[in-house]
Amino acid sequence: MMTQSDSVSPYPEPANGRGENANPPLQQAQGKGLPAFDEDKPLLSASGVSKFYGSRIGCEDVSIDIWPGEVLAVVGESGSGKTTLLNCISTRLMPTTGTVTYRMRDGHIRDLYRMGEAERRFLMRTDWGFVHQNPADGLRMTVSAGANVGERLMATGARHYGDIRATAGDWLGRVEIAEDRIDDQPRAFSGGMRQRLQIARNLVTGPRLVFMDEPTGGLDVSVQARLLDLLRGLVTDLGLAVVVVTHDLAVARLLSHRMVVMKDGRVIETGLTDRVLDDPRAPYTQLLVSSILQA
């Protein structure tokens, strides 16, 4: 019996669409190695991005570049606009002004807000990941762990149950979930496990860029440490570029290379993470750093 892959579609494929990615981009993970600092073009470029909610400022005139293999932390207190910024650059929230461009796998630089919806969705589920603070927002809670991980593969054309299941099992192992939980629903998982499952679900297609919104928020400290450690390892192994929003400077210190500090919707300081934390320049950054509790 034939699957639909061989039936002829009268509808044109989206540019850079399925045809090119006929085999699920599993093998495209960049393998071992260091972040490619010598790549001389940013992966994602936001320029002059502002978002207004009526007269209230979400974020204002933010310009940032994200380079391949780089982890960028966006820090600030609640209401500082960091999540608004994250949503604006990940096409989840249309900015009021400004442009966001992305360098596609084929090297072309595209304006994200001028892309068709189909192509944008394809990009989001192959080359990107999005890790929500609350795993329930990023998982299908009533679908097994294996299917949660396998969904992106199936959405990009994988049609071999055995292969999908094997890949899902492999990824569960990589995020330290026992393989015998593959048929359990995330409802039966602890918070930390759910978060790790969400990460596996995002990484299975070998994305180049992952957005994370407070990935360790709401977890116990010991669970947080384990998750951070896992993330550190995956980020290095896969050469991922990551934009991580967090209010926790310890998370930023541990995960990120570079930091953006936001206050009242504006970027008030940027720099190498250890420079910003060890020699904060802006008054607000100094306040943030001086407020860290020493354990």
Binding site: A147, M154, R165, I182
Partner: peptide
């Protein structure tokens, strides 16, 4: 409706996957 418009049918196979898994 958006999923139909975009031919975004991964979910259908998720359902069949669940069937086989169970």
């Amino acid at each position: 409706r958006k999923m139909h418009a975009l031919e975004d049918y991964g979910l259908m196979h998720v359902k069949l996957y669940e069937d086989i898994a169970r």
